[in-house]
Each structure stands twice: as C-alpha cells, then as structure tokens.
Amino acid sequence: MKKNAPIPTAIPLIIGIIAVSFSSIFVKWSSAPASIQGMYRLLITALLMLPFIRPHLAELKSLTRKKILMLFASGFFLALHFLLWMGSLKLTTVSSSTIILALEPVFIVIGAFFIYKERTSRVAMAGMGVAIIGAVLIGWGDIGVSRANLIGDLLSVFGTLAVSVHMLIGQKVVQQVSSYVYSFTVFLSATAVFAVYNAVCGISFTAYPGKDWAMFALLAVVPTVFGHLLFNWLLQYVSATTISMSILGEPVGSSLLAFILLGEQMTWFQIVGGMLAIFGLIVFLNADRFKWKPKGKQAAEPLKSA
C-alpha cells in the first residue's frame, strides 16, 4: 500500500512534467557537443546529491562485484541514451525527437518479454501498435524535410532503445540497492563513460562559453533534479503507471516550448503521427483498465494498476 504524500501528488507531478519538458530546449540552446552536455549534466547532478550521501556510505561500501557491474552497465546505457538523444536534437525537431522518446514504455515491454518472459495483454499490444505507427509517420514526414531530420529521428529511436535497456537493468538492480545509491552510482558511471568517450575523441572538456556552462547547470537542476529525481520520490506515493503517464506530457510540453522559444513549426505528418503515438501510449499504459471481468467477481476483485 502506498504512503500518504505530505503534499497533493498532483503538484510535484505537474512540476516534474514541466521540468522534463525543458530538457530539449536547454540542449538546443547549447552549442556544446552532446557528449559534453550529457557528461556535465550527470556530473553536476551527482555533485548535488553528494551532501546527502553519508547515510548511504555503508551500503556503498558493501556493494558486491556483481552489483557494481550491473550499476556500471546501467550507467553505460544511460550515457549512450543521452549521447544519441541529445545528438538527435542537433538534427531534427524537438517534437519529433521527444514523441519518439515517449515510446520508451513500448520498448521496455518488448525487452521485458524477451529478457524476463513478462507478458502483456492484447489491448496493450494494440496500443503499442498504434503508437509505433504514429512514430513511423513522424519519420516518414521527416523524409521530405531533410536527410538530417531523418537521421535525427533514427538517433532518437536508438536513444530510446538505450534508455529502455538502462531501465530494464535498473528494474532488477533497484530490488537489491536503495534508489539513492542506484541513482548516484549510475550517474557517476555514466559520467565516467562520457569522460572516456570525450578524451578518446579529443573533445575539449573546458573550451565553452558561459552560456553553455549555464545550460549544463540547468540540465542538471531542472529536468534531472526537479524531473527524474522528483518522479523517483513520487513512486513512494503513486503507482508506476501514474508516473509513466507523465511521459505523454513531455512531447506536448516540449513541442509547445519549442514553438514559443525556438520558433519550431510542426508538419501535418508530425501532428497526425504525434496524436497517434500519444493515443496509442494512453491505451498501452491503461490496458489493465480494459480487462474484462465476470460480473460475479467485479465487486470482489478491484482493477489492479500496472
């Protein structure tokens, strides 16, 4: 049973949705390479978490080699996600990239089926199919815009696959370590992966104007602390399905912000494809509510949330 939240859960949920919607805007506003943005975003977030690490030091010291390897693997795929997704924003529009990114739950279910043998309902599968058709329409529309837009869409797809692997690994690891230790070590691992990548590629660690450093800090504080970490905190009080629904708010919020702040326009393919993707995700995330139950058992067996 979930605990009672100290404040109405709608308040932090709305704050979180608005916060993550700014992520793509900050990426667009920075001229730094995606690998540098991702590295400093995660490094600054880990540094902000550092003052609160003392109660978790004993757990950190007791981590086994297997757990450390799992945490590093999760961090590796988180770094790969940021590298590909942030890179996609350099080539395609905010709306296309974030709508494709919102397909994360679909990829997770597919991965969970093959890795953990988890099954899903026919209604969820139907919603998944509609969402994928919507994403294909977005990519199809970008073919006529430019080759760069299409490559950006593909990078977003691969970035979504990477974050899905990160989540699937995390699904197992968080059962063995606290969420704070998980987040802190994964962020540090991803930062290390980025540092090695940047060093090997000869990318400068410091040659960036003040505006870029401001964007690095904003990426850490706004979408990461007030977005993803806030959602992790909310899991104590609301279901995972409720948190997952926030994924639908990001492409809508990001697209509106991109229109207002960046002057980006949406094509009809993006609008229709985006609407299909979001509708499919709504059906997918609420599939359990559509399950048929015999009349005699309806009162005794309440619907379960995913």
Results as ranks from 00 to 15, higher is better:
157 V>P: 01
167 M>S: 03
63 L>K: 12
191 T>E: 03
88 S>N: 06
286 N>P: 01
27 V>H: 10
68 I>R: 14
146 S>Q: 00
92 T>N: 02
247 I>K: 00
56 H>R: 14
243 I>M: 12
193 V>P: 06
122 R>D: 11
52 F>N: 07
5 A>D: 05
106 V>T: 13
63 L>Y: 04
224 T>V: 14
233 W>C: 05
89 L>S: 06
12 P>T: 14
58 A>K: 14
175 Q>E: 14
74 S>C: 10
116 Y>N: 05
135 A>Y: 03
29 W>Y: 08
149 N>M: 10
221 V>F: 12
21 S>W: 14
120 T>V: 15
229 L>W: 02
23 S>E: 08
87 G>I: 15
136 V>T: 09
19 A>C: 09
213 W>N: 06
15 I>Y: 02
260 I>P: 07
123 V>L: 03
38 G>S: 09
282 I>A: 11
145 V>I: 15
107 F>R: 09
72 F>G: 02
127 G>S: 08
253 G>C: 12
44 I>G: 05
192 A>D: 01
244 S>T: 11
49 M>Q: 05
5 A>C: 10
229 L>V: 02
31 S>H: 04
176 Q>A: 10
292 W>V: 15
165 V>Q: 08
156 S>T: 06
295 K>I: 06
122 R>V: 13
276 L>F: 09
245 M>S: 12
86 M>L: 11
249 G>Y: 01
288 D>I: 09
47 L>G: 07
